[in-house]
Amino acid sequence: MTTRELGPIAGALRHIILMVGAAVMIAPFVWMVATSLKPQGEILVAELRFLPERWAALHNYTMAFTRVPMLRFLLNGVLVTAAIFALQILVNLPCAYALAKLRFRGRNALFAVVLLGLLIPLHATAIPIYILLHMLDLVNSYTALVLPFTISVFGIFLMRQFFMSVPNDLIDAARIDGVSEIGIVWRIMLPTAIPAVTAFGIFSVVAHWNDYFWPLIVVRTKDLYTPPLGVAFFRLNDAGTEYGPLMAAATIVILPLVTAFLLAQRRFIEGVTFTGLKR
């Protein structure tokens, strides 16, 4: 941002401030991991220690998987998140393409609705959607977890903006080569839009892996719990006293996204920024 490097004093000051900030930001993570390694006896002591004297990692993590069906929760999380993303692409990409590149009656009206939809958070429509699912007897099912999210006006908007920048010539070339409109979506637009699809994918996966509100509302039985529900359930189940296994469970739930983030930081930050700015 600046045209030259900071002086030594300013540089040192920058590091001091940022180090303090970073320490605060990362403290809960450190405490979580540290606690997940300690035996109960070392956790409930009024002393600030990070490394355990006696390691109880194996016990805590085993407990996290055995006390509650954690594996099942994780699997549900993967399943729901993947299904939502796959269906979002399947439903929203063709619509985005049509809005960006085809002339058809009602296009402007549809786009206006999409823009309006951008302003509405899910919480606002939760009650009627719940009532609808209730009437269809779909509450407490994978369908209830996935279906309301298959439509993403945000995804449509984002992909449309991206498709607008794809040259019309490319689409015309495909038409001349004999690719159908639906073929153009999948054979030409999708591969061209991989950066935008990735950004949207990161946004979608992060949002739905972490979502607590909707699963809390529509899920009744443990076999459908997603990871956030699983952690909340674990906490209630153990009356919040067995902190070692609880912190192990929290670590397990956080780990997939955090690992993915650490491996592809640039992608994630770009994805979140991109989707954040367009929102």
């Binding site: 010539d169 015309d172 070339a173 038409r175 001349i176 004999g178 690719v179 061209t192 991989i194």
Partner: peptide, 18 residues
């Protein structure tokens, strides 16, 4: 277009980038 037995070269070349 594909049934007309024609081929077209575009100004922007329109090559499939992928």
């Amino acid at each position: 277009p594909n049934e007309r037995d024609i081929a077209m070269v575009f100004q922007s070349y329109a090559l499939y980038p992928h």
